[in-house]
Amino acid sequence: MAKRRLDYLEQLEAESVYIFREVAAQFERPALLFSGGKDSITLVHLAMKAFAPAPIPFPLVHIDTGHNFQEALDYRDQLAAEVGATLVVRKVEDTIRERQLTEPKGKFASRNWLQTYTLLDTIEEFEFDACIGGARRDEEKARAKERIFSVRDEFGQWNPKLQRPELWNLYNGRINKGENVRVFPISNWTELDVWRYIQKEGISLPSIYFSHERDVIEHDGQLVAMSPFVRLDESDRILRKRVRYRTVGDMTCTAAVESDASNLDEVINEIILTRISERGETRIDDRVTEAAMEDRKKNGYF
């Protein structure tokens, strides 16, 4: 008799595929929020598996801060074309102009917080009732309490004290008009699980995830890419380093790590050996307060 035993990556995949199918069945207008990062790339791959041989039955939506890495944008366009999905791009730049928002100031002025405005406008524009995101519970303390189906009110707000109990694998996606649900199919995956799955499935990634030469400045122990969006001070020295990215967000709030890892095996080895968490090493915006993520989520962020 066959062994009939799934390893942990196969179990995680089966669970995520199940969640994707629940979304397609329970909602009228779902969307997959795509950033060009490895987590949302993994989501697209899982969605393809969930609905094969049919195409993914919802659009990919990118909220473009204007501070993205070009490599990630190129990859986004190529992937959307490859999988035959509709790609919706909405720019934070436009929201800032139309809604007269104030741009954050400072050395690494990040539009991360302003993304929420564009996201909520986009949800309203297309009447999306479910937005699928690549957030994982291992990333951060507030996310550890997040549901797989996370109901948001018409302001996109998360209320951690009023979450629906989520039992077995039963996901209750019933909402009132104007509300929406954020769905996190890879909630139970860790950073390393995602990397190992990418390796196992042979998923391609934007080149910035692998070692390359780049001009950076060192700030507070972190390496930030030189870009038009970073304000240079006199004391800054521009260094040429071999780096890779462990996460891909905005150029202003994602830090690079020094590395010679040029393929998946080497990257995974480095991640196994590293003693610093993904967010701690690479996210400049999370270092503000202990509750930074909780606050952003309450305001409609992912």
């Binding site: 519970r137 550890a144 309490k145 909780e294």
Partner: peptide
Amino acid sequence: TDGLRAEREQGITIDVAYRYFS
């Protein structure tokens, strides 16, 4: 293991949190 601000302030666990290790 205390995730939410209210939990840290009150020193209690209110909700289920999920942790991962291997």
